[in-house]
Simulated assay, not measured.
Amino acid sequence: MDILNLLIISLILLLLYISIRKTILNNYKLEEIKNSKIRTHKLVFNNRQILVYSLTSPSNAANRSIGANKNFKEKKLKNPNYKPFDFRYEEYKLAFLNS
């Protein structure tokens, strides 16, 4: 396969990706649920309601984000031993065990 064919195939795949992405973004909206303890969104797809949870990454790099979180700061003031791992654990517990 020569380079021209590869470029044509790549361009077709890119255009297909852009088309599919636009269709999804225009037709399926995530509606934020404000009163939940973790960031939650509702997606309606084929007459089904799907709850989507935005969870903090389990990486060490996410600790900075957790440290800036308002809920984490409040809990840290009440308990000085409260760590980012504890915050992340509570978040994952709500998403996976209470849903």
Rank of each mutant, 00 (worst) to 15 (best):
S19E: 03
Y53G: 00
E31G: 01
N27M: 06
I8A: 11
S10K: 08
N47I: 00
P84N: 10
I66V: 14
M1R: 09
L15P: 01
V44L: 12
Q49L: 06
Y92Q: 12
E32F: 03
M1A: 09
N81R: 10
T56A: 02
K73C: 05
Y89N: 15
K29H: 12
Y92V: 15
Y28E: 03
S10V: 01
V44H: 09
T56L: 01
L51E: 14
L6N: 13
T23A: 14
N46R: 14
A68F: 10
S10C: 04
Y82Q: 03
D2L: 13
N60S: 12
N47M: 05
I18Y: 09
A62K: 07
V52F: 02
I66R: 02
L25R: 12
L43H: 07
L30E: 01
L14T: 12
I3K: 14
M1F: 12
L7Y: 05
L43N: 08
L14V: 04
P80M: 07
N71S: 09
I50T: 03
K29T: 04
Y82D: 00
F85T: 11
N35W: 05
L77H: 06
L16T: 13
S54K: 12
K83A: 10
I18T: 05
G67E: 14
Y82H: 03
I20H: 07
I38N: 07
L4K: 14
T56M: 02
N98F: 08
A61E: 14
A62T: 11
A95S: 14
I8G: 02
E90W: 05
K93P: 00
P80T: 04
R21G: 00
T56C: 02
T23H: 08
F85M: 10
A61Q: 14
G67H: 09
G67Y: 11
N79Y: 05
N71A: 15
N69Q: 11
I24Q: 10
D86K: 11
K70W: 11
I66S: 01
R88G: 01
Y53Q: 08
S57E: 10
S59H: 09
N27Y: 08
N26F: 04
S19R: 13
Y53E: 01
K83G: 01
Y28A: 04
F72K: 09
N69M: 08
F72P: 00
I24D: 12
P84D: 03
L25G: 02
I24Y: 13
Q49I: 06
L11N: 06
N63I: 09
Y82C: 02
S59A: 13
N46I: 02
P80S: 08
Y17I: 06
F45I: 05
L4R: 14
